Simulated assay, not measured.
Amino acid sequence: MVSALESTPLVAVCSIDRDGVVRFCNAYCAELCGLPSEQVVGRKLAELLSRGERQDEHDRLLAEVWRSGRVGPAGDWIVRTAGGRELCLASVKIPVSHGGHLDQIVCMDVDVTARRPGSDTMLSVASHFEQMFARTSDAVLLLRDGVIEEANPAAVALFKCASAVRLCGRRLEDFLAAATAGRHRLRARRRGNGAARGRAWQQPGRMVLCRLRRRTVLGRGPADGDRP
């Protein structure tokens, strides 16, 4: 998932909580808003990309995504950015659950001010975004403050757990050999990206070799993606 965020330079991606506050964004989202990334995270989406007279309609759309847990319909919106520009964005909302609990919506926007390709483009992007996390053969873990928030099926299989619920809420170090865990904590303190070989514990106690790749997602505090 982290790779997907980093490899979509023309798609603005941000995550909002139930209060409509942006919890992380990619670089293009910040550029679209006209602000540095650190000024985007922590502010309400409605302040960054105002829908004007259609703001109430947009709020109702988000409320329905929270209620249903289903991807919202793609559509075009005229927005006023925090930087003062007026743009036409093709937008889609994707609910994301952590440990079976829906606690964020990923908003994906494409600037179609100069050309409107239609909503099929955004639907395709959204589908790829969801399928990548679910279908990649890489074991992907989403971490915040070192705690596992989400695990894809490949990670569940690697660690021999019955379900992702058995991983969520635990620290990645719980599944790493001592030396590997130490190196991971050092990189976390430095907030560095990179890859290294190490050893991980499967359940109920078998050790396997792995290659741990760390990617940092912009956000409030550490929000990391790890691919054992």
Score class of each variant (00 low, 15 high):
Pro9Cys: 10
Leu10Tyr: 13
Ser15Gln: 08
Asp17Ala: 06
Asp17His: 07
Asp19Gly: 14
Gly20Thr: 08
Val21Asp: 05
Val21Tyr: 04
Val21Cys: 07
Val21His: 06
Val21Ile: 11
Val22Tyr: 02
Val22Phe: 02
Phe24Tyr: 07
Cys29Leu: 01
Ala30Ser: 15
Glu31Pro: 00
Leu32Glu: 04
Gly34Ile: 01
Leu35Ser: 00
Pro36Ser: 03
Glu38Gly: 00
Gln39Phe: 05
Val40Thr: 00
Val41Glu: 03
Lys44Ser: 15
Leu48Val: 09
Leu48Trp: 01
Leu49Thr: 07
Ser50Ala: 14
Arg51Ala: 13
Glu53Asn: 11
Arg54Thr: 07
Asp56Leu: 07
Asp59Gln: 15
Leu61Tyr: 07
Leu61Val: 12
Ala63Ser: 15
Glu64Met: 10
Glu64Val: 09
Trp66Phe: 09
Arg67Ser: 10
Arg67Pro: 01
Gly72Met: 06
Gly72Ser: 11
Gly75Phe: 04
Gly75Glu: 13
Asp76Arg: 14
Trp77Leu: 11
Ile78Arg: 14
Val79Glu: 08
Arg80Ala: 11
Arg80Gly: 09
Arg80Glu: 14
Gly83Asn: 12
Gly84Met: 05
Arg85Asp: 15
Glu86Met: 11
Leu87Lys: 15
Leu87Ala: 07
Cys88Pro: 00
Leu89Asn: 08
Ala90Val: 04
Ala90Asp: 13
Ser91Met: 14
His98Glu: 14
His98Met: 05
Leu102Phe: 07
Asp103His: 07
Asp103Cys: 12
Asp103Ser: 11
Gln104Trp: 01
Gln104Lys: 13
Cys107Val: 14
Cys107Ile: 12
Met108Lys: 07
Thr113Leu: 03
Ala114Tyr: 02
Ala114Phe: 01
Gly118Ser: 01
Ser124Phe: 02
His128Ile: 05
Gln131Trp: 11
Met132Gln: 13
Arg135Pro: 00
Ser137Phe: 03
Ala139Pro: 13
Ala139Met: 07
Val140Lys: 02
Val140Thr: 10
Val140Glu: 10
Leu141Ala: 05
Leu141Glu: 04
Leu143Trp: 03
Ile148Val: 10
Glu149Lys: 07
Glu149Asn: 04
Asn152His: 04
Ala154Ile: 04
Val156Gly: 08
Val156Asp: 08
Ala162Asp: 14
Ala164Gln: 15
Arg166Cys: 05
Leu172Thr: 03
Phe175Trp: 12
Leu176Val: 03
Ala177Val: 01
Ala177Pro: 00
Ala178Val: 10
Ala178Phe: 01
Ala181Asn: 03
Gly182Val: 01
His184Ala: 12
Arg191Ile: 02
Gly192Ala: 15
Gly194Gln: 11
Ala196Phe: 15
Gly198Cys: 13
Ala200Arg: 02
Gln202His: 05
Gln203Glu: 14
Pro204Phe: 01
Met207Tyr: 00
Thr216Gly: 09
Val217Glu: 04
Val217His: 11
Pro222Leu: 06
Pro222Arg: 09
Gly225Trp: 00
Gly225Thr: 05
Arg227Ala: 14
Pro228Tyr: 05
Pro228Asn: 06
